[in-house]
Design a protein around this nucleic acid. Structure first.
Length: 619
DNA sequence: CCCTTTAAGCTTTTT
DNA sequence: GCTTAAAGGG
């Protein structure tokens, strides 16, 4: 174990200088609510706090820190930051999980603590729509009002979520719950993600020893993207840690609350502050954006009803850095030409394609196809990221890509280490355990990669490529992978993922005729990403082009103005240096003959404030 | 069968 | 607020 230092001796690691409030959040003794605006460095704050808690032994050895995120990549990123900063010793005491993974872990570990009536089978499946539907039918539910499949699914989801455990009365929902949790006819137990959380809560509420164990294990808890927490997630957090000695650090930004429509609890900040007696600390530093962009963000604070306080700008910028433009056009072909000209300027300045982003409120494909074509005319690739983002975060895709890379170029240290460590895991070998077996597997791996290496240069058709990927999967042992990643064992997901990957990779290869280049292109190194505001959350780009600052795109503004204001704020706060908005009066493709901006005129007013944006109108 | 009317979707994640 | 698909009417 490393040497313990006192709290007053502690200094941030990695020669980072923490702003005063960040240091206060790191050293806070109780529960804290950290209000962290865009670019405030919340991942860094959590990393520093981890270092502080372990180095001072305030998180007493061998107790752990639990970090809960929404998305797997956020959980993974945080874990990786801790490991690269402090090494495996601290990383081992840092559990970084998603809410669902955390709840599932509790359920799987303590399933037997549940009463027989609501104890699922060990091999339960998750979110099988067919089984859920059957369970409700069998329980006597009739879709008499003719709900559409998606409405029906959300009806089921809600019915399941509002059933109280243990079952008090016989209702259709409680009967369906019981069928699902116990399995019926030929169906295994089938749980929804909400059911998993509900069962985890039930276990913790009814088993004081398990609860106590959890509280002893995790002396400190980090909650990421706190503004997006749902009621059920908050209930899980409260069940786990309310009135315990475990100290919670919740980090979020209520100006980026864009998930209320999907169930985020609107009052979460106040509720948490009150119920957990949490101290509220606001981070003031914006490490991301140039001064002129921060000025716009400050203006937005007013419309979001928040004090901008002493919002501070990173010293890396000059006072006049940053550029905001508003293009107003009548015709989308001209719009495309102007945006492309602007993008070409950025590229000439040395901004790389994947440091540029094209954002839309929603349906990016509809808003950008003419722009994509126009960019292509200048040999600039741009693509809607949705499918790629989904694929590139999949374990199996990352693994296959890494195998291809080390097959092409053995001297790719990062990829080699990755492949090696995964193979060790899959094949169940550890160097010091069984040296002979280790070398045996290692030789097999090298031979296999040699085979792939020879084969890949000879591929002439998509079928060849498919066969090769199939052989890679066979070598990896699909069953082992499915055991390691239960999601792949369910339904058609694994097969569909592989097929999509093959499809997109082969398309790249046909274009580039070079595998290394094709893989990198697939990874997005040579194209401008296009995405919705929601997908851009948490990301940053040197230049952001927001296409469609129009009433038509902000159709929801009338119903949820606060949330759409937040969406606008999220969009503009992604940019580091260049921020371009585009309004187009006539979009042929969308047959929007007369776009207006009366509903969202407040955004235009903001941009037209003195010293904010250059407005460029062209006819 | 064709034309008109109505209503849903659009922004999302999780093993 | 606009598109799309399904339902309804002649």
């Amino acid at each position: 174990m490393q040497k313990i230092i006192s709290s007053s001796q502690w200094i941030p690691s990695g020669s980072v200088i923490l702003e005063e409030n960040a240091a206060a959040a790191v050293k806070a003794k109780g529960n804290v609510l950290v209000n962290a605006g865009p670019g405030a460095g919340k991942t860094e704050l959590l990393a520093q706090k981890t270092g502080f808690l372990f180095q001072t032994n305030i998180c007493v050895f061998p107790k752990k820190i639990l970090a809960i995120s929404f998305k797997t990549d956020a959980a993974k990123n945080l874990k990786e930051r801790i490991e690269s900063r402090y090494g495996k010793e601290y990383a081992a005491r840092f559990s970084s999980l998603t809410y669902d993974a955390f709840a599932k872990r509790i359920l799987d570990q303590f399933r037997n603590a549940l009463p027989e009536e609501i104890r699922p089978d060990k091999n339960y499946v998750i979110e099988d729509k067919k089984i859920i539907n059957e369970a409700f039918q069998k329980s006597g539910y009739r879709n008499s009002s003719g709900l559409t499949p998606s409405k029906l699914a959300s009806y089921y989801d809600n019915a399941i979520a509002t059933t109280s455990l243990p079952f008090k009365e016989q209702t259709i929902s409680s009967r369906a719950w019981k069928l699902l949790v116990k399995g019926f006819d030929d169906n295994l137990s089938c749980l929804t993600f909400k059911m998993i959380s509900m069962l985890a809560i039930y276990i913790l509420k009814n088993n004081p020893y398990i609860l106590k164990g959890l509280r002893i294990t995790y002396s400190h808890v980090f909650l990421d993207e706190f503004q997006d927490t749902t009621n059920l997630q908050y209930e899980l957090v409260k069940t786990c840690f309310l009135n315990s000695d475990s100290k919670i650090t919740a980090v979020g930004d209520n100006k980026q609350r864009i998930m209320v429509w999907a169930g985020a609890r609107k009052t979460i900040f106040e509720d948490f502050q009150r119920e957990f007696s949490a101290e509220k600390i606001s981070l003031l530093m914006n490490h991301r954006s140039a001064p002129r962009l921060v000025n716009l963000q400050k203006l937005m604070y007013n419309s979001l009803q928040e004090e901008s306080g002493d919002l501070q700008i990173s010293t890396k910028w000059n006072e006049d850095d940053g550029d905001i433009k508003l293009y107003i056009s009548t015709d989308e072909n001209k719009e495309a030409k102007y945006i492309v000209a602007d993008i070409i300027e950025r590229i000439a300045e040395g901004v790389s394609l994947n440091d540029i982003c094209i954002l839309c409120k929603q349906m990016p494909g509809n808003y950008t196809d003419i722009l994509i074509t126009e960019l292509a005319e200048h040999d600039i690739k741009a693509r809607v990221e949705t499918d790629y983002q989904d694929l590139l975060k999949e374990f199996i895709v990352v693994l296959v890509l890494n195998i291809l890379i080390v097959s092409i170029e053995r001297r790719s240290p990062a990829e080699w280490e990755y492949v090696n460590s995964v193979i060790e895991e899959i094949k169940g070998i550890e160097l010091f355990e069984r040296l002979d077996k280790y070398y045996q597997e290692h030789t097999k791996l090298v031979n296999f990669l040699d085979g792939v290496s020879k084969r890949i240069s000879l591929l002439t058709s998509k079928t060849d490529f498919q066969d090769m990927v199939d052989d890679i999967l066979y070598y990896l042992d699909i069953e082992k992978i499915k055991a390691l990643y239960p999601a792949y064992a369910q339904g058609n997901f694994f097969k569909a993922t592989i097929e999509k990957m093959i499809d997109l990779l082969w398309t790249e290869f046909e274009e580039h005729k070079d595998w290394r280049l094709s893989i990198e292109s697939f990874q997005g190194l040579y194209s401008i990403p296009i995405m919705t505001i929601h997908k851009s959350k948490g990301l940053e780009y040197s230049a952001v082009y927001f296409v469609g600052l129009e009433d038509g795109a902000f159709w929801s503004f009338k119903n949820q103005p606060e949330e759409d204001r937040c969406a606008f704020f999220v969009a503009l706060s992604r940019a580091k240096e260049y921020l371009i908005f585009s309004f187009c009066e006539h979009r042929h493709k969308l047959r929007f003959p007369n776009q207006k901006h009366t509903d969202i005129n407040e955004f235009f007013e903001l941009l037209k404030s003195p010293n904010i944006a250059t407005v460029i109108e062209y006819i």
